[in-house]
Design a protein around this nucleic acid. Sequence first.
DNA 1: GCCGTTTTCGGCCCGACTGTTTTCAGTCG
Length: 569
Amino acid sequence: MAVSNSEIAAVLDEVAALLEISGASFFRVRAYETASRVVRDLSRPVSRMIKDPDADLTELPGVGKDLASKITEIATTGDLPLRRELEEQVPTGLMDVTKIAGLGPRKAYALYLALGVTDLDSLLEAARSGKVKTVKGFGPKTEANILEGIYAVKGLGRRLLWSDAEPIAARVVEHMKALAGVERAVAAGSFRRLKDTVGDLDVLVVCADAEAAGEHFVSLPGVTRVIARGPTRSSVVVDDGVQVDIRVVEAGSWGSALQYFTGSQAHSIALRSMALRKGLKLNEYGVFREEDRVAGETEEDVYASLGLPWIAPELRENRGEISAAFEGSLPSLVELRDIRGDLHVHVETGEDGGTLAEIVKAARRKGYLYIAVTNRAGSEADGKALLETWKRIDRVNQTGSGLHVLRGVEVEILSSGTLALRDELLSHADIVVAAIHTDTRMNRPRMTRRVIKAMSHRHVDVLAHPTGRVLGETLPYQVSMDEVIAAAARYDVALELNACPRRLDIDDLACHSARDHGVKIVVATDAHSARELDYMRFGIHQARRGWLEKGDVLNTMTYRSLVKYLRHR
DNA sequence: GCCGTTTTCGGCCCGACTGTTTTCAGTCG
């Protein structure tokens, strides 16, 4: 059986959580967490590495002899004896208990020992009956927080789409800037790193009067609960259940505070370790040699003091960006203005669907050189409508509007991996985008074979939304992206990065891996209306997180180059 | 549990806030 990297990482995470609850050394716990992250971020499957005599797991950062053998065991058997032992000692339901804000592993374990709390339900019972506040180290406030927080965990636990977080962030920033004395205000954290989903919002503010800024912050309209209110740091929950944290600093610490508050945590830890090795100390107030602050006013200063160029927030995940920065090999990331067209657009698809004329007008307004109209074809029966659409496209092109409309199709990949349209028809398309919308619950080997068979078809140019995920709704298909990327390189098929904010499919890691394999990416909106052409910027966010440069993205090409590429591939 | 142009042992990022404490552990980011 082939155990995927994310499955291995999940076992390591569970071991880390159970170890932490049982009181293991913080550093031992962190070793498991680090290993989990390293395995999850790996572009090669561990299950294949362990069969390769040239590959050595101990060469991975944070993986020593012991963890290498444990990872090998998980990759082989799917589980670990240590995890099973811990499961006997520690009720796994306590992992849910630690998700309650303010309840960590130590307190959860204390409640288990004192009251026999094993999960959220038994905790709720204990809190309701007033037993929690009788335990040493607990009081009435903690008990009240548990009663309040437990429903949040049961109902919530979900992350916001980046595109949904954006208006909330804008609201908070605007509110803070309205206060006299606030010099700067910006949303940092995973929002600034442009992650596809955002857990909570972190806002950094420069204000001489920190007290006034904190007071003003908790007066933000829509605040339903104040979690913490300190002189430099406060946290609230706003109407939609989103936690917003604010941190107030002085202007001289802006850069170091912005670095610290942007994260990621793994990136920050790596930077701080690096500082220590150079005899420096990095915290949110600056970079210090002994007592002297040697940097801190700007992020550029902070990185420069460590001998590094500034690193774009999108890259700050400790996935190799620090060594790339050190070597001067950071990617020159693709930008929205590099995009020359959209290669996945639908027209006249029901009541809300945009007309061809509307879409063309909107695309021209964006300054695009081309778009591809790729209406769906799920069976041979759709061939007739497709030909009609193509005829209308021909007429638009004859008007010579300056925008080239490509005659495309989004053709269904049937269960067997064959395409829903016959070759003769496909051969007349300017661009063929293949995708799966039906029979999505296959096992991994079958689904992978199905996709790769479709990619081997000589007319297929692009594989659209390759994993089918819809954030917060639909899990990705069981498909080996590693094999799909290898096939894309072999058959010279581009992979789509679907820019719809609910999809953003493929993800950042797959983008990075595709780039490493020389596979071209198409960033496309899958727009069904003129307005949805604006999704492009979300796709660019993800592309940047995936280290993509302009040259990695197919639709940065001029029209002439694109046509040449499509004809000769 | 990992790791080493000071180290194979003794470190491991660092500070703010809360609640429960009579001086600090636990939690969080």
